[in-house]
């Protein structure tokens, strides 16, 4: 029975844009209204981004504090090629993702010479450069603090306009499915077991005659490429790239998502990413009506996260699993 839960969720996600059901409280408007669909699309993208990050954090045990860099590079790279160089969207994405993978390979090669906390700090520092560059708006490329709106002239007609929001939803869902297929494929392959072996005891993997360094670098590059693709999809959905994508806060929220959902588990990061993105958007919508700090989504999310670390190790999926066992 439990095996079919992901399948049921998928069917629900596929049917959702055809539903005119209003869900008062959870969403403003009906399920298939453009506002709700865009919100859901962002949730799905963050589900995918969080799972991609969990490939590093939960599976390989690499506490990277610089994942935002690759997301931002994907978003800005695509956006710049479309809006400044007037490339077609598919060509922009096809050029950006491999370029970001190369960037991840170069930076990862340096950062992975360190381990543990030093690795965290180095990745954080590299990502900070991205944040600085984006904000300084070199040559008018990135739009500085304002961000860079995506020029809709370069986009396929099916992705432009409020009436086509449903297609953005499909793109987001496709991205999430791709990340799930890739990451779960790795989980199932011998590589997955080696990766978790790496997380638990690096020496054991080295004894097997495998280069821990190369494995980690490969994982880092793959996670970087997935992040870049997610960044491009995010830019598509919100209609541009903004400096927030490059901020350390974004990486921190990815960590929060992975841990809230249950790092290293099959569905934990996806659940965490979707729930976090939903709460972040929904709390912002209704935030004005709440008193004091409760009006700040990050206050609620940060507090929830701290509580989760103490009282729900294993995250949301861990809690559900224990519930399931008790029942």
């Amino acid at each position: 029975m439990k095996r079919f839960v992901p399948l049921l969720v998928l069917v629900a996600l596929l049917a959702l844009p055809y539903s005119t059901l209003p869900v008062p409280g959870l969403f403003e408007g009906t399920l298939n209204s453009p506002g709700t669909l865009q919100m859901l699309a962002i949730c799905l993208v963050f589900g995918g981004l969080a799972l991609g990050y969990d490939l590093l954090f939960g599976r390989a045990g690499l506490l990277s504090f610089g994942h935002a860099l690759y997301i931002a590079a994907g978003a800005y790279g695509t956006d710049i090629l479309v809006s400044h160089a007037h490339w077609p969207l598919w060509a922009a994405v096809a050029a950006t993702v491999p370029a970001v993978a190369v960037l991840a390979a170069l930076l990862g090669a340096v950062a992975l010479r360190t381990t543990g906390i030093a690795f965290a700090m180095v990745t954080l520092a590299f990502a900070q450069v991205g944040w600085i560059v984006v904000n300084r708006d070199p040559g008018g490329l990135t739009g500085g603090e304002e961000g860079l709106p995506l020029d809709s002239a370069g986009l396929p007609a099916a992705l432009v306009g409020v009436a086509n929001t449903v297609n953005l939803y499909w793109v987001a869902l496709a991205f999430l499915l791709l990340v799930v297929v890739v990451v779960h494929g790795i989980d199932r392959a011998p590589l997955g077991r080696v990766l978790t072996g790496l997380r638990d005891d690096e020496r054991r993997v080295s004894v097997l005659g495998l280069s821990a360094y190369r494995l980690k670098l490969g994982t880092f590059v793959l996670a970087g490429a997935l992040a870049a693709l997610g960044g491009a999809v995010h830019a598509l959905i919100v209609g541009g790239a903004s400096p927030h994508l490059a901020s350390a806060d974004l990486t921190l929220s990815l960590i929060v998502m992975a841990v809230l959902g249950g790092a290293g588990t099959r569905w934990g990061a996806v659940v965490g990413g979707v729930v976090y993105a939903y709460l972040d958007q929904r709390l912002t919508q209704i935030g004005g009506g709440l008193p004091g700090p409760l009006g700040q989504p990050l206050f609620i999310l940060g507090t929830l996260f701290v509580l989760a670390v103490y009282f729900a190790p294993g995250g949301l999926t861990g809690v559900l699993k224990r519930r399931g066992r008790l029942a």
Partner: peptide
């Protein structure tokens, strides 16, 4: 949380997010 170093980092991360938001609301 001593002896659980990753959780310690995570708690400080959550605290920094929530704390800045708290200052902002005040």
């Amino acid at each position: 949380l001593y002896k659980r170093p990753t959780e310690q980092v995570l708690v400080t991360v959550g605290l920094s997010l929530a704390g800045v938001a708290l200052l902002q609301s005040v």
